[in-house]
Nucleic acid binder design. Structure first.
Length: 798
DNA sequence: CGGGACAACTTTTTT
DNA sequence: AGTTGTCCCG
């Protein structure tokens, strides 16, 4: 009984898409190729469940990859069926599981308002752990240790499990110790890290079956987007949650699985049919996004992969423009080329035409040159990724103040802001304060309040109590409810002295201070917006924001500032630049990873070189190249009308000049789809067909020769020439080792003995490959030294 | 205690 | 190369 209004939900869908919307019961795998109208299908499906089948929104759990994708989905569903859709659980794995944890976390021993630690917090905790265990940072950096633990967590390996499978060797035991101590430390601080949000929820389900049962009963329809990027823990969560209803719909594309490094396993999607033998499989193979040319190129790139589900995308669109490949002389030339091309497109487009241009790269470090080139031409751009807004120092300062006001026992926040801006409370004072706090069993904040009672703190007591007073005053302001939330944030920024501090820096000519002030201003705008959302949206949506019953009660009855603050802080942790709305008239600069799920009329892919894209380290990993290839596939399929791929003969990166041959992925694209420009013919050779006038050519060559030769000595240039020839003649080691040191890193391993001119005999502790070089950590009889292999005066000790 | 100078680190991708 | 962190001196 399909009414007219409801049939709208099936309008403009092809037959497979329709089937995907209508197959609501039982396990369903939707293999959705790039640009195949996936989001449309998902939103229609949810709308269909609610409107047509009368499923209560709260019974629907839809998991997306980013908060932005979630918001977009909510909006689109609301556009379809209006307010009826309110109350469904749509969000990322992290935000959805966090909601569950907030509700039941006490069962795991967490106090009600546990905090989520971000990378910086984690690093601090880990640094302490390593110090405690007397492990030198030289041997294992906090960063590496955290990466290791994250790996375990993504693979659903607890400290206990790790121990049980440990070999008993020292190195294994040490890993267990680190993992244990880290978890213990987090727990004592009543904190979880990002991965814990998922692993602890899983633990909750396993140890408290009634909780799982509650959730199973609530969520009778589960939908997971980007299923190819789920990891073992996420798979397990989904499996448990859907075990009862079995109405599990997963949507994904194995060809776009690009998060292997984060523990995502492509097996989840490849094995879905084995895991759920009675499942329905639907393939969406018609592409509505790109031209035939772009799609053909994408297919050529991906078909080289072996482990994939066979599918062939097709489009009804025309051939479109050929793919432009540009081989630049160097990284600067490449950047200028892109900037010029971007400028030309902006100039040519008429006012009403919507131009969406993106430049994609494999790693953030590549954006820098491009930024300069764009600025030279006065082109506006937005960068995604890199340092996130909420990760910026000044923003983190403000949020630390806010955290401290909210929970005075938050030691990390206390330590962050106690002397930021400077108020004469240094390391010595802090150490004494910690000691005093330890003796009395006080929090640092309370200890500061009572600093006068400790003779050791006498000199700093005045400054400490002043700080305490400031925080107390701010808390009073919070509780008095006389301010709007944004006003409160502003008050914190001013009273803390941060604003004055940066204003002074700016006055003194600090170049960064200005943008920091702008960021502080932006945080206030953010607060205004956040507050407005709370004011205008229904109670259902507040329900959506938090499942802490007490807090919800607070918000419903008096909409307290305290409650708003807590929601705000919670969101700040999970918020990333990915979630920001994209503004159109500018060029977007982002990594290929960030571009997932987006589309642009014109796409540039820069740095298409061996060693960059595919990345250096992917050569080592077992399925590394396959993942890189999928990444290339994602990059190519972002383009609707036009694709430009560039590479550079020489590239200065991380202080070393590299000479990389063009990426194998660009070689996979057949000649008939491509138009080549730049120095493909050979060194310093151009066929002149690049559309530049001869004077531009003069400039072009001068720039190129300057940048290639200027900074280097003649001897080096000779060496470069030799290297370049070796590389372009396709001997596949693009990075011959320098011979000066007489040290062949490939023959070395930890434990080997080496001789240094000044330090004498030492033992190699660790070797870290760094592209064209390696870092050696060597123990000279207790003195730990680090060397760059190519530069060091080391020899193998016979 | 604060600011400046130097050293060390980055080198994939991120919820 | 560029940025961040640490050490030392005023």
């Amino acid at each position: 009984m399909t009414s007219f209004e409801d049939s709208v939900l099936l309008k403009n869908l092809n037959s497979e898409q329709k089937r995907a919307v209508l197959t609501t019961e039982g396990p369903l795998l939707i293999l959705a190729g790039a640009g195949s109208g996936k989001t449309r299908v998902i939103t229609r499906r949810v709308a269909w469940l609610i409107r047509q089948l009368g499923v209560h929104p709260a019974r629907i759990l839809a998991i997306t990859f980013t908060n932005k994708a979630a918001n977009e989905m909510k909006e689109r569903i609301e556009r379809l069926i209006g307010l009826e859709s309110r109350g469904s659980w749509i969000g990322t794995f992290h935000s959805m599981m966090l909601r569950i944890l907030r509700r039941y976390g006490s069962l795991l021993g967490y106090r009600s308002s546990f905090t989520i630690f971000d990378t910086t917090d984690q690093r601090r905790v880990m640094a302490d752990v390593l110090k405690e265990l007397k492990i030198s940072e030289r041997i294992l950096s906090p960063r590496e240790a955290l990466a290791m633990i994250s790996r375990y967590k993504n693979d659903d390996v607890s400290p206990e499990e790790l121990e049980s499978r440990s070999s008993g060797y020292y190195i294994d035991r040490q890993r267990v110790d680190i993992y244990r101590a880290y978890q213990k430390s987090l727990f004592e601080k009543n904190a979880l890290d990002f991965d814990d949000i998922l692993t602890q929820t899983l633990r909750l389900f396993r140890e408290h079956p009634h909780v799982l049962e509650n959730c199973q009963q609530q969520f009778t329809y589960i939908l997971v987007d980007e299923y190819q990027d789920t990891n073992v823990v996420q798979y397990e969560l989904i499996r448990l949650l859907s075990a009862k209803s079995r109405n599990l719909c997963v949507v994904g594309d194995d060809d776009q699985s690009i998060y292997g490094f984060r523990g995502a396993t492509i097996r989840n999607i490849l094995d879905f049919e084995d895991d759920f033998p009675d499942c329905t499989v639907i393939r969406l193979e018609q592409n509505y996004r790109s031209t035939k040319t772009i799609l053909a190129a994408a297919n050529q790139v991906i078909q080289e992969n072996r482990s994939r589900k066979k599918k062939t995308l097709w489009t009804a669109h025309g051939e479109g423009e050929p793919i432009l490949m540009y081989r630049a002389a160097d990284h600067i030339d490449e950047a200028r080329f892109i900037a010029r091309e971007v400028q030309r497109r902006f100039q040519l487009a008429d006012d009403h035409e919507e131009i969406e241009i993106a430049v994609l790269y494999r790693m953030n470090a590549l954006s820098r040159n491009l930024e300069f080139a764009l600025r030279e031409l006065g082109i506006e751009y937005i960068i995604y990724g890199g340092t996130r807004f909420y990760d910026r120092a000044e923003i983190k300062d403000v949020t630390a103040y806010l955290s401290l006001i909210q929970s005075p026992e938050d030691e990390i926040a206390f330590r962050r802001v106690i002397n930021q801006p400077r108020r004469g409370i240094g390391a010595v004072t802090l150490e004494r304060l910690a000691e005093f706090a330890g003796q009395r069993g006080l929090t640092l904040f309370e200890a500061a309040r009572r600093a006068g009672e400790d003779p050791d703190l006498a000199r700093a007591a005045g400054r400490l109590t002043l700080f305490v007073k400031m925080i107390d005053t701010l808390r009073d302001a919070l509780l008095s409810e006389e301010l709007s939330f944004a006003e409160f944030v502003r008050m914190v920024e001013v009273d803390s002295g941060l604003i004055a501090y940066y204003q002074e820096l700016k006055a003194r000519g600090d170049v960064e201070a200005g943008s920091r002030l702008e960021n502080l201003e932006e945080l206030i705008s953010d607060a205004i917006e956040f507050e407005a959302r709370l004011d205008t949206e229904s109670l259902d949506d507040i329900w959506e924001l938090s499942h802490d019953d007490e807090l919800r009660e607070e918000l419903i009855t008096d909409r307290s500032l305290k409650g708003v603050l807590r929601l705000f802080l919670e969101r700040a942790v999970l918020y990333t630049d990915q979630d920001k709305e994209r503004e159109t008239p500018k060029v977007s600069l982002m990594t290929v990873h960030s571009a997932k799920g987006l589309e642009f009329s014109t796409v540039f892919i820069m740095g298409a070189e061996e060693g960059i894209f595919p990345s250096m380290q992917s050569f080592q990993e077992p399925d590394g190249i396959e993942e890189e290839r999928r990444l290339a596939y994602v990059a190519v399929t972002r383009a609707k009308r036009e694709l430009i791929i560039s590479s550079a003969v020489s590239r200065l990166l991380f202080g070393h000049t590299q000479y990389n041959p063009p990426s194998r992925f660009s070689d996979d694209i057949s000649e008939d789809l491509v138009e080549k420009r730049g120095v493909y013919g050979g060194y310093l050779d151009s066929d002149g067909s690049d559309g530049m006038s001869s004077s531009e050519h003069g400039e072009f060559f001068r720039d190129m020769v300057n940048s290639v030769l200027k900074k280097r000595h003649a001897v080096e240039a000779q060496e470069d020439e030799r290297v370049y020839k070796a590389v372009t003649s396709r001997q596949m080691d693009p990075l011959p080792k320098k011979e000066s040191s007489g040290l062949d890193v490939s023959e070395l391993k930890p434990g080997d003995t080496v001789r240094h001119v000044t330090f004498g005999i030492g033992e190699i502790q660790k070797i870290t490959e760094t592209g064209d070089d390696a870092i050696l950590v060597i123990d000279f009889d207790g003195r730990i030294k680090r060397f760059m292999a190519s530069q060091s005066a080391l020899s193998i000790d016979e």
